[in-house]
Structure formats: C-alpha cells, structure tokens
Amino acid sequence: MGFHCSTPVAPLGDLIEKIWDWDMPVAAHRFERVLPQPGAVLIINLHEDETRVYADDVTRECTRSSACVLGGPSSRSQIIDTSEQVRVMGVVFRQGGVHAFTGEDVSTLAERDTNLHDLFGASADGLRQRLLDTPAPAQRLALLEAWLHRRARMTPVHAAVHHAVSMLDRVPQLASIPLIARATGLSERRLLQLFRRQVGMTPKHYARLMRFRAVVRHAHAHATVDWSAVAADCGFSDQAHLNHEFRRFAGLSPSAFTARRGPHPNHLPLD
C-alpha cells in the first residue's frame, strides 16, 4: 500500500508531468473538494467499476462515469467520493499535453469527464484489466507508461501556444494577451483560437486560473495568511477582487479554504 509516482522520459515526458499509483485505506471523511487545474488528468479506478463526481450544491447530485476517464482542463472545483479513492491510478498532463496525446480539440474535453473507451476503444478496457492483474505498483506504473507511449499521437503543439503558456505561467498577474500575441507573430484572434483548441480555454481565462493557483500555493504553505498582502502580490486590485476570484474557482471563500486545508493542496476534506 502507499503512494507511488513516476515521471516519464521524453518524448512522453514533454506531454505528461507525472504518473501516480494510490493504494490506501478509505479516508475518514466521505467527500473531498478537488480544486481546478489547467492540465487534463487521466483517472483509472482499480477499486470500483465507475467514477463519481457530485454537484457542488446542497443536492450533491451524482454523475457516474466509467472506471477509466479523462478529466479535461477545469476552471471549477469538483466534489468526489472518497469511498472509491482506495486503489486508483492517474496521469497528470502538462498544459497542451492532452492535445498532443489525443489529437483532440481540448475545448471539447474541458469541464467534463470523458470515458477513455470513447477515445481509445477496447484498448482502454484491456489496459484496466491488465492493471488489475498486476500486483506491484512499480509494475503497474511501467505498464501504464508503456500503454501511453504506444497510444500517444504526438500531435504538435504550436510554438506560439508553448510561448504563451510559458509567459502566463511565469507572471499570470502581469501578462498582456495582446503583447504575447505580438511576440508570437500571430494576431490575437489566431492565438486565441489555437490556445482554446490546444489548452482548452482562452489565454485570459488561463491567466486567471494560474493566478488562483498561485494564491492556493501561498495559502497552503503558510499557517497564517495575510490575504491583503497576497492580493497585492498576486496582482488583484484588492482583497475583495481576490475573494471573488477565489470563490469563482474554488467554490468557497479563502477563509473556508484555510479552515479545511489538509496535507494535499488540491484536495479539501468535506463531510
């Protein structure tokens, strides 16, 4: 049991940040809030034959998908069921990586889970069965990485998109989309089209999301948080602006985040 992680080598490593294997007891809390992130995530449930996400409201309406799903880039939090998070494997794609891997228009995959069978057919079903039949985590990681190598379509990501992502990652609070477009030699409209197709959202929305992620990293790393200072450092006009954006992406206030945070910055225990 435990958590194991690997980083594939190039060229697959240019698309994928990490591959992980989670084999742990059921958590004490029933639900977790998963914060949004710009990269897609492949999830393979080895404990149950489905994955579940819940509406972020009082109804907690459940949406069920297959045991193997590709979660597209997201700009809002999800509620997941910890009872199924016992034996799970995952693949975290870099920005633009899922476009290079699948060849798909990523904007059509965003904000939802897509059954892996719909993208890769019976190969996805066979992958899960082989993982179920493999007892050792290191062997499962190697098996999954080999499958990813065979299935990667290696669709090129446009150099202008690479440049824009790099600039927005470094200084999302200062980035000017017109200036970035000018630096790439493309029109702003053309850059927006390419960025949406290959990253899954507009450059402006991506910058807002990365600014939110910077706030999460800062807040998770400090026992006490000066939200006014964080707002200024991260480029918000004031603390009220930060609060509004934080609620928009996380589904809860900054103070509620600090009250609920646990060991993992992207997962918040609920009831």
Rank of each mutant, 00 (worst) to 15 (best):
L132Q: 10
L194K: 05
V88N: 06
P265G: 01
A232G: 07
V58K: 14
A67I: 01
V161I: 08
M89I: 12
R64E: 05
R150N: 09
H205Y: 09
T82E: 11
F236N: 12
A67K: 08
L168Y: 03
V34F: 11
T82Q: 07
E111M: 13
E104F: 05
D169G: 01
G200L: 08
R261F: 00
D49L: 00
I80F: 07
A175T: 05
G97T: 11
P254C: 13
H267S: 11
L131H: 02
I19D: 01
R211H: 02
P36L: 08
L119C: 14
F257T: 00
R151W: 11
W22V: 10
R170M: 10
F31H: 04
A159P: 06
Q129S: 11
L46V: 08
P265V: 00
N45A: 02
G72I: 13
D21K: 01
R52W: 14
T82R: 13
E245A: 15
H149W: 10
H205D: 09
F257G: 07
H162I: 05
P172V: 01
I80N: 02
A231P: 08
V230F: 00
D56K: 09
N45S: 15
A10W: 06
L132Y: 08
R33G: 04
H218G: 03
Y206L: 10
W227G: 13
D238W: 10
A175Q: 01
I180E: 06
Q139E: 15
V92M: 06
N115I: 01
I16M: 02
T134A: 06
P135Q: 00
T184D: 08
A164H: 15
A152V: 00
A138I: 00
H158V: 02
L119H: 09
L148N: 09
R217V: 15
A160C: 04
W20D: 14
L174G: 04
H117N: 02
Y206M: 14
I19K: 09
